[in-house]
Design a protein around this nucleic acid. Structure first.
Lengths: 155, 155
DNA sequence: ACTAAATAAATGTATATACAAATAAAATAC
DNA sequence: GTATTTTATTTGTATATACATTTATTTAGT
């Protein structure tokens, strides 16, 4: 995912035509996801965050100053298969979050974003705004339709 | 990626509206890619293949009975970051491919799919056909438009 | 031809993923 | 109230990813 210098346009050198547009769409979605992830990785690297760590930090910002449990974070992550505990471990090392035992349920943990975490998100947000990586010619209506169709595709 | 029992519709429990449809689209594409990969993983598991291994096998089928080099395989893979050598190692263990030194360039290797590999692909293809996992209401024209727009998005 | 630069593949390594299993606490059953 | 089941999180582990480095070979420069 971190090899980004690649021209994805000539991406998979497919010579034969695809058997159907839907066949092609499956591959296109995977390719585009890989491309987006790649772009995010590059942009987050100077801040020493992985896309997953960034995702968790934003989730916690949405609840600040209150906390989420490990489980609530997992429910909100884009990639649910990764281990919220271990991502939190990394964020904890960098003091971007705090993790304390829950008072009511001693099995659960309360995870909160710190002031340092919030400041980092602001900094990154400024950086991303400056780059503006939405391609020209793209518009909200197209995006809205695609969102609708992607939901159908999964449904 | 292998946690598939998940309802992706209520996927990330986003309560606040997204700041834009394009913002939402980025996440939707990643989510859908993860979903597709998940479905493929499940379906390939009985055949003891990962999606990447399956991808490489299909690439080699496209060239059969001729060979591709390691490099040519990488160029055609959806996820270029993974190591073609090590994927080939796995396929070799299962005798689904052969790997021999190239006559003209002794640095390069010739990788070919075996009869066993071709038979496995046929078997999988039959299985996938039987399942038919394209959602109702989906059509080629929608897929064609999305392909066009995804290409724009990456471009 | 001899050296330097480029290329193809393999290998090393730290981290991440995809689970399974373990641990611990809470809820439920009886 | 004790035993059983469920739930929340952590830990273990095999494999995969994202590179960097190494090795072997070929090509280009002089």
């Amino acid at each position: 995912m971190y090899i980004c210098a690649m021209k994805l346009e000539e991406a998979i050198k497919q010579t034969k035509p695809f058997s159907s547009e839907i066949q092609k769409l499956f591959i296109n979605i995977q390719l585009t996801a890989s491309h987006l992830n790649c772009m995010m990785s590059q942009r987050l690297k100077p801040f020493d965050l992985s896309p997953q760590q960034f995702n968790v930090l934003r989730i916690l910002k949405g609840k600040h100053p209150d906390s989420y449990s490990n489980q609530e974070i997992t429910e909100r992550m884009i990639d649910k298969s990764s281990n919220a505990t271990r991502i939190a471990d990394k964020l904890l090392e960098k003091k971007l979050i705090t993790r304390t035992a829950n008072k009511a349920d001693r099995r659960a943990v309360d995870i909160r974003i710190t002031a340092k975490g919030l400041a980092l998100l602001d900094e990154i947000s400024e950086q991303l705004k400056r780059e503006q990586f939405v391609p020209a010619g793209y518009n909200e209506e197209k995006a809205r339709l695609m969102n609708e169709w992607l939901d159908e595709l999964r449904g």
